[in-house]
Design a protein around this nucleic acid. Structure first.
Length: 139
RNA sequence: CUACAAACCCGUGCUGCCGCUGUUUCGAAAGAAAUGGAGGAAAGUCCGGACAGCAUAGAGCGAUGCACCAUCUAACGGAUGGGGUUCUUUUUAAGAAUACAGAAAGUGCCACAGAAAAUAACCGCCGGAGCGUCAAGGCUUGCCGAAGCGCAACGGUAAGGGUGAAAAUGUGCGGUAAGAGCGCACGGUAGUUAUGGGUAACUAUAAUUGCGGGUAAACCUUGCAUGAUGAAAUGCCCAAUAGGCAGGCGCUUGAGGACUGCUCGUCCGAUGCCUGCGGGUAGGCAGAUAGAAUGUUGCAGCAAUGUAACAUCCAGAUAAAUGGCAGCAGCCCCGCAGCAAUGCGGGGUACAAAAUCCGGCUUACAGGGUUUGUAGUUUU
RNA sequence: GGCCGCGUAGUUUAAUGGAUAAAACGAAGGUUUCCGGUACCUUUGAUGUGAGUUCGAUUCUCGCCGUGGCUA
C-alpha cells in the first residue's frame, strides 16, 4: 500500500501543490467557492488522471490589497501551508475514489494571524468541505 | 568617563522534532544520505551599464536630459579632491548649504503700492521766443516801453519725489542756467590685457575700458550626450488534436482496426490507413548565476580608486523554496536588593524579503561597535 | 517583473505664479409650517507630505506617501 506511507507522514511536496497556470485558470472559472472567515476556498473535483498523482492539489494566495508588505504575505502563506500540512489527512481519507480535488485558499483576513489561529481556520474549513464533497459526488 | 555631532561597520547564536528547495552520491522505483539556501537596504524603480533581438549610408530638423574645474569609473544625473557664491558662528579662522553656462542674441512676465517695474514718461528744477500787466522813463501826446510780476510754445535735466521684494554705482569735492561719472579722489562691481601662483576652475597685483533691476526649477540661446524596446527580451526542443506537403499500401480478389494471451471466427472498413516533412500550440530547456565577484596583504594616490600576489565559491525559486513549534543563551531597558561584583522579577529584540545580473542614488531601521571632533567632569 | 497617469471642502469639478482658494450637491443651525418637504438665510469645511526656486507656489523642480490604469 503506497498510500499508507503518505498517510503516516506530514509532508507537502510539489505534487501535492497546484502548480500549473492552466489548471488554476480553469479552477477559478469553473470551481465552486465558499468562505469560512478568515479564509475563502475555491475548489473543483476532476477525475483522477494518473494513479501516482496526489488526490488533492492545493494552492495558497494572499491578496496584496489586504496585506501590503511582502514580508507579511510570506508569513501568512507559510503559516497556512504549515497548518495544511499538519491537518491534511482527514481530508485525504474522506476523498472519493478516482477523483482529484483542486482547491485554492485565499486569505481574506486583515491582520497577521498566529499559528494557532491558522490551524483553527484550516480545521473549520475542512469540516465544512468534506460533507460538501460527498453530496457533490452523489449528485 | 559622560553627552552631542559626523563618517564607517555589525545588525542575534545554539540544540531538538516536523517540513520546503538547489546540487551531489546511492537506488529499478519509492526514497535515503551529505551539503548549500535572503539583505544592508533584497525596497522605491530615480539614474547608469552589461546582455538580447530589431533598426541604422551620410547630413539636418525635432524631442529628452545634463551644465564651475580636475580626477575616478564599463558608464552615470554617481563618487573624491579643489574653486566660486551665499549663510552662520566663539570672525588672523571654522562650519553648513549650493540644479553653480548665458539676462551684453531675442520674446515674455513682475500683483498691490508707487511718479515710474524699464527704448525712462510725469511732477519738479533751469533756460525761454512770445503774450498780458505795471509804469522808472522817452518822445512825434497817444504811442513806445528796461527791470519786476503772471501765463507760456519750445528746449535742457535726471539731483529730489516718504512706495515696494526690487528704483538706474556709494560718499565727498569741483563744476553748471539747472544738473548729471561731466571731471577728480577714495570705494563697489563687470570685462579685457600684462605679470606672479595654480594641471584647471580660479586667485593676487597693476593698467585699462565700462556701469540702464529681477526672473532662464518662463519660452529660449550656447555647449555636450542620447536609436527605441526590455528577460513576459531572445534562442532552442517538442506531446495530443486538426489542417498543409511528400511517399507507400489499399479501394470489395480488402490496407488497417475492434473483440482475444495466440489461432480461427464475427463485426467495422474507402473524402481510408501507415510513414516522413513542415509550421508550431500546451509544456519544457537555455537565457540564469564564476562575476566590472568577495576577502586579506603589499604598492601608487590627499582621496574616490587603481594595481599585484594569495585565498575563496557565497541562493537560484517559477502560483514562486529559504519555514513552523519548543527550549536554552546573548544584547538592551525598567524596578527591587546590594558599597560593589552581582542576583531576582518584568519588558523589548528593528526595518524589511531575492525574481536576469551589476554600479550608484533615495527612503525605512530596535539595538550595538570603531574612529575623529566639540563640550563637561574626575584623577595624575 | 516592466511602463504610464492622478492627488484641492464629506462628494463632483474650478482657479495665467499675485493672496480671503471659487461653485454645485451635502452636513449643521435658523426662518417659514400644526408637522414634514420645498423655498430663503447663516455657518462649517480643503490644496496628500517634506524640501527647494521665486519678492510671492494649488500652479514650477526634486524626494517621499497614497491611489488608478496598461502590459501575458
Amino acid at each position: 500500500m503506497s498510500t499508507n506511507s503518505i498517510q503516516q507522514r506530514y509532508t507537502l511536496q510539489a505534487i501535492e501543490r497546484l502548480k500549473l497556470r492552466k489548471q488554476i485558470e480553469t479552477l477559478f472559472q469553473t470551481g465552486e467557492a465558499f468562505s469560512v472567515f478568515p479564509l475563502r476556498i475555491v475548489y473543483r473535483l476532476i477525475p483522477l488522471s494518473d494513479a501516482s498523482a496526489s488526490p488533492v492539489q492545493v494552492g495558497f494566495s494572499i491578496p496584496k490589497k489586504r496585506i501590503k508588505k511582502a514580508v507579511g504575505r510570506n508569513r501568512v502563506r507559510r503559516l497556512l501551508k504549515e497548518a495544511w500540512r499538519l491537518q491534511k489527512h482527514p481530508l485525504y481519507e474522506a476523498m472519493p475514489q478516482n477523483q482529484q480535488l483542486h482547491c485554492f485558499l485565499i486569505y481574506t483576513g486583515e491582520p497577521l494571524l498566529t499559528f494557532e489561529e491558522a490551524k483553527k481556520a484550516v480545521l473549520k474549513l475542512q469540516q465544512k468541505l468534506i460533507p460538501k464533497l460527498k453530496t457533490d459526488i452523489s449528485i
